[in-house]
């Protein structure tokens, strides 16, 4: 199970490469979306390894509130810089 956690950490670094090299604005947002979902998986696996179920509350709150930032940035770009 630790091996799977390490592999997901490696894949999250790979998908963060899209944030750095992405030519357009939306490529960066796509990479950020991938990174956020991989971070949620990492915390769930960490909670399963340690047997601490209170870490799952953090993932629950993050999945409820984490998408607000991405949706707000793409809305901002679509309206050409007006909120």
């Amino acid at each position: 199970m630790e091996i799977i956690l390490g592999l997901i950490a490696l894949l999250s670094v790979v998908s963060a490469g899209r944030i750095v090299i992405g030519p357009s604005m939306w490529d960066r947002l796509l990479g950020f979306n991938l990174l956020a979902s991989k971070l949620m998986m990492m915390i769930i696996l960490l909670a399963a390894i340690r047997g601490e179920s209170y870490l799952l509350d953090m993932v629950l709150v993050y999945s409820l509130l984490g998408f607000v930032g991405v949706i707000f940035i793409s809305w901002f770009v679509q309206r050409k810089g007006r909120v």
Partner: peptide, 24 residues
């Protein structure tokens, strides 16, 4: 708890992708 996170993530993840592509 994992089931609750799973049901939330299956709704939210495609929604965010759709919103990014719509913006582009």
């Amino acid at each position: 708890k994992v089931l609750a996170i799973l049901s939330l993530g299956m709704v939210i993840n495609p929604l965010v992708s759709h919103y990014i592509v719509r913006s582009a």
